[in-house]
Design a protein around this nucleic acid. Structure first.
Lengths: 349, 349
DNA sequence: CGTCGGATTGAGAACGTTCTCAAACAGCGA
DNA sequence: TCGCTGTTTGAGAACGTTCTCAATCCGACG
């Protein structure tokens, strides 16, 4: 294989414009102190020759890599993927990220990493050494992994933690999960429900705990019991099905259920069908995430909309401008909203 | 911002092991003609120091970039994304690609490009100059864009064209769309349907034409008319809805409809609901793609399964090994299968 | 008209790796 | 033991960019 070279380099441009490499470099990077006439002359050569700087060379000489690395949970992603049940996070994250990155001349790369792995630190460390990204975005549950955040802080690489309120290094972008869960619960209580079941996510996602707290708070404030109405799932369809089966098998089963993500809510629908319960008249359902699928279920689901894409987009902007802007020390909160659809009505019994 | 340097470089390893840079390089790249003892000594230093080569530097010195670039249709992707109707291709592509890439120490990056843009060539050319990928994967409709394929061929960058049977440069991985459509149509005819409507995709996707041909062929072979039973959509929900509305407004409407992707099939369901038609007893439906959503619609949809992820995975493997293996001159065909669900029954009238 | 200081430009080193080519080494037959 | 050949190792250039620092230019001021 022949050594592949850059077609047009900065040298060609410099020669064409009759200036030094350095001047071309200055024009490329839009640096001050270049005379306008000179700038135009160089830009002209750049355009005519179709020159584009090599990112590899830029990175080499100590500049930026124009790369943002987004870290996602491999275990969850692959499981969802193999079960063909949708990979909503990756999806939204990637697109929110790619579009925002491209506005700034950056790129985004998605890396899948196992949190439950002794080698996380080594694995991620190697990736960073190899790619040298300008910024890293951590999604749950990585955003709370001390090994990872410690590593990034030590390497002095700007990073954003999505969905974690825990103090520590890095920019934090949080969804107020407690508030969202409270909001959803209050809506159901407002409709007249008194037994509202909750299907939570796994324990190693701190958002699971926040959501449980929100649900409990709303129930207790209304003087309603929560005992026995809490189940845990793992964000997959099957776990939502099983959790709901348990809830519906109670002596006095809930008249409404909140599921911690859309996939588990699909399981909830399925469990109701199995028992010949009508949704929503026998069982109201609210889910979290509001991914595309919930518009097309029967009935369409009322859901808490987590603006994942907007969050990632914001994270990208902050990371890219990290040098220019003062870093927010406090978490930036991203507002979730409740999207009402046909799955929530007053209890019929 | 301080000039960011590599923590551990090949020099550190060389010094630590007491050998030259070149020897370390040889060990990294697993080259022959290194004495076993020497190899072990160097590997030892590498492990102990936690050395990982800088991809930027490797690429700079003429080696590989360990990057595969996947080109997707920006227009379609963004439209789907904003309408929150799912971005199935990107999703599957990305994951199939990422997982396979990581097996070989490569990475995948997704780039969104507009085909309907005079600057496609320039835009893509710039991306390639900047990133210098080792291979490029083109998905429809880019896989048939002569400007793009010509550019890649000229730059001598290995590339794969997904879903295009058109002759020309590049590795071709095709789904036999004519066959799939024929298969779906024949299944419906086998159930007793005589009026089978077809909602095709846009004209600039050549697969649209192939699928229409397959549908027509099956109908004609069974001696059934096709006139008036063909509608075009743009792969989005709304267009599927509108196309189906037209079909159902016919004097003798179809008893079954094949939609060219899942999103349009959702529109078909919606159109049937509006007319108070029961799916499947009044209207059978088959869709293309078999993305996660069709498992959860009411009823779940019979669908042609396009193994997108497996296809991308294969493309990645071929591109990575392009130097070692002889290039396939003929298109590699990826078999689609028909997944039967509850949306297809014999006609009831 | 000379001088000073900031603005503008350029020369050469540096970044971390692989490539090219030459030197040292080892094995083998005579 | 010598010479030949193929294997193993190393030295220095090359890759394309930016950084550092020095040189030049230009306008204004005395």
């Amino acid at each position: 294989m022949a050594r592949r070279r850059q077609a047009v380099t900065i040298k060609h441009v410099a020669k064409d414009a009759g200036v030094s490499l350095q001047t071309v470099s200055r024009v490329i990077n839009n640096e001050p102190n270049v005379r306008l006439a000179m700038k135009e002359r160089v830009q002209n050569s750049i355009d005519r020759l179709g020159y584009v700087p090599s990112i590899a060379a830029q990175r080499m000489s100590g500049s930026r890599s124009y790369l943002i690395l987004a870290i996602n949970d491999r275990e969850k992603t692959i499981a969802e993927w193999h079960s063909r049940s949708g990979t909503d996070w990756v999806d939204q994250m990637l697109l929110g990220g790619i579009l925002t990155c491209s506005q700034y001349g950056y790129r985004m790369m998605v890396e899948l990493v196992d949190t439950h792995n002794d080698h996380v630190e080594r694995e991620l460390s190697a990736t960073i050494a190899a790619l040298q990204p300008d910024g890293v975005i951590l999604t749950p549950p990585h955003s709370e992994n001390r090994l990872i955040t410690g590593l990034l802080a030590k390497k002095n690489i700007p990073f954003a933690r999505i969905g974690s309120v825990e103090p520590g290094p890095g920019i934090r972008l949080t969804m107020d999960d407690e508030r969202s869960a409270r909001m959803a619960t209050e809506m159901l209580i407002g409709l007249g429900h008194r037994r509202v079941g909750f299907v939570a996510g796994p324990d190693d996602y701190s958002l699971s705990t926040w959501r449980i707290n929100g649900w409990k708070a709303a129930m207790e404030q209304a003087g309603l019991p929560t005992s026995g109405l809490l189940q845990h799932g793992d964000f997959r369809f099957d776990s939502g099905l099983a959790a709901t089966q348990s809830l519906l098998a109670l002596a006095s089963p809930p008249t409404a259920i909140i599921a911690s993500n859309d996939q588990m809510a699909l399981g909830t629908i399925e469990a109701a069908r199995e028992k010949n319960l009508d949704v929503p008249s026998d069982l109201s359902i609210i889910s979290f995430d509001n991914t595309p699928v919930v518009r097309f279920t029967d009935p369409p689901l009322t859901a808490v909309d987590q603006p994942v894409a907007a969050t990632i987009s914001k994270a990208v902007e902050l990371l890219i401008n990290v040098a220019k802007l003062p870093l927010p020390r406090e978490p930036i909160n991203i507002e979730a909203t409740l999207v009402e659809r046909a799955s929530t009505v007053p209890p019929q019994n």
